[in-house]
Amino acid sequence: MVENVVTLAIIVAQIMAIVGPLLLAVAYTTWAERKVIGAMQLRQGPMTVGPWGLLQPIADGAKLFLKETVIPSGANKVVFIAAPMITFVLALIGWAVIPFAEGWVIADINVGILYLLAVSSLGVYGVVMAGWASNSRYAFLGAMRSSAQMISYEIAIGLIIINVLITAGSLNLTEIVLAQQSVWYIIPHFPMFIVFIAAILAETNRHPFDLPEDESSLVTGYNVEYSSMAFALFFLGEYANMILMSAIAVILFLGGWLPPIDIAPFNWIPGPIWFILKICAVLFIFFWARATLPRYRYDQLMRLGWKVFLPFSLLWVVLTSGVLLAFDML
């Protein structure tokens, strides 16, 4: 009995050790985004709350927390309240299998990458439920667009993951990283890295693929009826998802916690620091895309997903397996 309690306590402590810093990181991702986009547009970004505006995310959080939660009278209450929670929880549970360094992982499961694919395929439910339960046309249209978009790009992501899997020969995330000790997969699979970055932009509903919250045609899409903490959960979920997807990109293509070159000044820096630095680099691409690219039209988005990314990544699977088979590297 005591052992069970201790085991549970250790699990809870591990979860807290991830979720706490993660929430802080989410808050400061919003700050970093505003600063980066500000710099790109020759503005200063948030400056007034705290030094360099560092307390801005805290102030935003407090503001949202103190607002009144408005539930539309025509809304389906239970589903309406459950939807943001689902979005937020799904953005968090993916972190259970992310290895920060060798052995630094809550659950080192054999099917880690499939677990992540499963979690990201569930993400569509938060959006669909929110759109339906709001009982509003804009929200519903946003939800429809979002689910079609997320399903389309998930297929491309699945095929890209297959490329990495057959090269690494494992579904376990730690082993995928360790397989990259000689060369990061960004080098042999560079076109797949580009496609993966574009697909995760679409999967997280970010610019230039942010049609679900296209403010010029849908007000703000699926979350238009949400206010206060319910809205904050969607917002936090979106950013936590961005960080999660960046972490996946780092693990699959950028060698996880491994240093770029395994020589003196680089391997003094511990693995988790490398991992976080690489996540920041991928996040910067997210901000960069938001500041520079115009939004896609809906038909362009669907065409890109189905007629470009899907055949191309399928072709790459054939090519990769052919090369691996020919050189006997499977």
Binding site: I109, L122, I151
Partner: peptide, 22 residues
């Protein structure tokens, strides 16, 4: 049966049930 569990979620929950819901 961890593999079956993940495939159940990816295929049924992630794709089939979404179409149902639609």
């Amino acid at each position: 049966a961890e593999f079956l569990a993940m495939v159940l979620i990816v295929v049924y929950v992630g794709a089939v049930a979404v179409l149902f819901l639609f």
